[in-house]
Amino acid sequence: MNGIVYRKASEKDIDRLIELNIRLKRLNEEFDPLFKLREDIVEKSREYFQRALNSPDSVVVVAEDGGRVVGFIKADVVERLFYEPKIEGNIVEFYLLPEYRRKKLGAAMLDYVIKLLKERVDIITAEFPALNEIAVEFYSRLGFRGIVSTYARES
């Protein structure tokens, strides 16, 4: 698909980011009831993106088609206190609208983010629900492998 532009997000994208973030979280909810959406998810999303856009340690990138944002990635730069390599670029949110999937655009957007982070980080990690096999397949194809497991139970 031609004409897709990747760029850093800015304040004017926040409403759209909230919308796409909610889609992403709803998808997570499909995988596991422990990802049930909070009622105040809109406000929380707004605060979240505002904070990220103002933080030197977060990167938010959007994919744009004809001026319309159709996907986004949020990554954080984190220090790994005990391990080498020391600085990690952690992809915490990743969403692309369905009609833009399976066209290598997700990989291209990820590439764009990694390029932005390259100077600063030595290792790239990604988080997603354990049962999201589509994500497992996607990251595995790009050479990622699992290094951390999060197990949960309701107390």
């Binding site: 889609r23 709803r26 998808l27 499909e30 995988f31 609208l97 369905p98 009609e99």
Partner: peptide, 20 residues
């Protein structure tokens, strides 16, 4: 293709999803 339940369809009714 952008209906609110589209990702749910992807997981639970891929046939309808493809058509969407």
């Amino acid at each position: 293709s952008e209906r609110d339940d589209i990702d749910e369809l992807m997981l639970h009714n891929p046939w309808k999803y493809e058509l969407a």
